[in-house]
Design a protein around this nucleic acid. Structure first.
Lengths: 343, 343
DNA sequence: TTGTAAGCGTTATCAA
DNA sequence: TTGATAACGCTTACAA
């Protein structure tokens, strides 16, 4: 029912193929015929059929976004990955398809790649050792990651610079005078499955603390308020000299605040808190507003797509050096960090 | 390079079409040939090409999710719409494509619908009067809404029951003894562009208050803490008898809490707050934890897809009564609502 | 129950 | 600079 290319061709009085060439610029077309063709297209309200085009050209201009949906649901940061990626894709004339892939059903991934529906994939929530990445590699499907495996090799990625982020958090606290800073991480299970951010933040903190010449006290912590509260109490019992905490756990940090309340410590007078890799959308909701190292989530989403498209649109014979980028978090000073108490 | 249907046919020693019929169940195939075909498919690792299938059958099994990205970004609730929709789509063997559509670029929508790429669309963030909805209607593309226009007619939708939600909020507060309850809504601009939830919540609150025989005091409010704070002070100045506030504005509610702090009022002893249509993911982060009417976001996303698929998979000759569903929010009692003070 | 063949709407090769 | 026409990989009448 919608006009086809042949209809345009007839109306412009040219061959079908000429319309195709005019449309794609794959071959020179004289200015006058091009004009006629364009007019015909306008008049008919012609839109090229994406399926037919994809079938014939073997390029669909569709990208897949692989995102697992963890038990707890996704947060603001993840939403920003998605919108950033979707925006970037659109700007480049691509579509973004959502592929909710649990790590378990690798079959769905095979299904997806085998369908010939997508030109490439963007992988979110990457683990240090990630089957999906292996599979995509085997499938020969171009892809990039938001995050990275332990050994990315020649795979392109955009990730947060956790080394820098933990360093910045410690530096901020040391400038304020703190000399004993703890680190509250994500859950033990995130750590044990090798979730990238969890592992790298721990390593980064360790190194940064050691470089700064301060003791490093760290703990994983369940992703909920109760766990955060318990963790704080334990941390304080075992390390009473602690004057500040770097927290990479949005759900637990509230528990820490509650624990402080319980012992009538005020933030930041008696204790300082810096939340890392958490959106200000969230930390603004807390009182006092948390000092935060905010991840460039939207930017990471955009970058992930750009990196992928670089691969896709590079001529196949050229060498393709992977693009691997680490972006820093931005320090947003709130009201949860101040000089240590004179105890 | 990947195996095609003809390869399967040859290996199973049947005609190409028989493979197709076996695959789709469009026509009876004897058990034995079907077995041979299945085996051949397995052995070859055959995956049907989605593009070719779509081109020939005029059905792609791809759904579009239309979501505008407002200035402030999307929140947890919106993310849940997305994951719910994506999950439901996958369960039914469909793909979900993200179409970040600003209201302005109606052209992109035309582009999308004209491409023959999608079977139907799911529209998010619907306004009372929404061009996108009009356009989809004209384009003849099946679609459903999460939310609804002022006059949905025969368009299928799943939306929050704002009437019920505001009623529940007021009922909760009245049970506690409150007799003068105010309502803090979204921004004036959301109201003026006719954003569905904003308008309906206001209407719902008005009716519920009137039915309950209490005064209704309401105000729109900018989506940020400063505006929330100012709004509270103004509200209190003009209506000093207020003992509680129903708030449908996640970003402003923190400002209200700050304002209460300023005048040394404690929550809930001196003043109660009920946050409506906001995720517990967010209200759990606040101290005291807010009493909330939590929207069934994931469910709405799922339902939106199901409703759409009902339309799509119904035989075209049958009459198709639209499915229009309103879902209630769930009351989660936190620590921000209690009996009114004995002033 | 199975086979044959005509599309589906493009791209891209080969000629002119 | 342009035109025919063979793929692309499948669905679906129409025949047998």
């Amino acid at each position: 029912m919608p006009p086809r290319m042949i209809d345009v061709a007839k109306r412009a009085d040219v061959a079908l193929s000429t319309v195709s060439y005019a449309l794609n610029g794959t071959r020179p077309v004289s200015a006058s015929t091009r004009r006629r063709i364009m007019r015909a297209m306008e008049e008919l309200g012609y839109r090229p059929n994406a399926l037919a085009r994809g079938l014939a050209s073997k390029r669909t201009r569709i990208l897949a976004l692989l995102f697992p949906t963890p038990e707890r649901g996704l947060g603001v940061t993840e939403m920003e990955f998605v919108t950033g990626a979707a925006d970037a894709a659109r700007e480049h004339g691509y579509h973004l398809m959502l592929a909710p892939s649990e790590l378990r059903d690798i079959h769905e991934l095979e299904h997806l790649t085998g369908q010939g529906l997508i030109d490439g994939a963007l992988v979110m929530e990457v683990r240090l050792d990630d089957e999906r990445v292996d599979l995509l590699g085997q499938a020969g499907l171009p892809f990039s990651m938001i995050g990275r495996t332990s050994d990315p090799g020649t795979i392109s990625y955009a990730d947060i610079d956790f080394e820098q982020t933990t360093r910045d958090a410690i530096a901020h606290l040391m400038e304020l005078g703190h000399r004993c800073v703890g680190f509250l991480n994500h859950s033990p299970s995130a750590l044990s499955v090798g979730y990238g951010p969890t592992v790298r933040a721990a390593e980064g903190f360790r190194r940064a603390a050691s470089d700064a010449g301060i003791a490093h006290i760290e703990r994983p912590c369940g992703d909920n308020a109760a766990a955060g509260k318990a963790a704080f109490h334990e941390l304080r019992a075992s390390s009473p000299e602690l004057t500040a905490l770097v927290v990479m756990n949005e759900r637990a940090v509230i528990g820490v605040m509650n624990a402080l309340d319980e012992i009538s410590w005020r933030v930041p007078d008696d204790f300082s808190i810096v939340s890392i890799v958490s959106s200000t959308r969230v930390t603004e909701m807390m009182r006092p507003q948390l000092t935060t190292l905010e991840p460039p989530s939207t930017e990471l989403g955009r970058l992930g797509v750009q990196i992928l498209l670089d691969q896709l649109e590079r001529p196949h014979d050229e060498p393709l050096p992977p693009t691997q980028k680490l972006l820093p978090c931005r320090l947003v000073v709130g009201a949860s960090s101040g000089p240590p108490p004179a105890r």
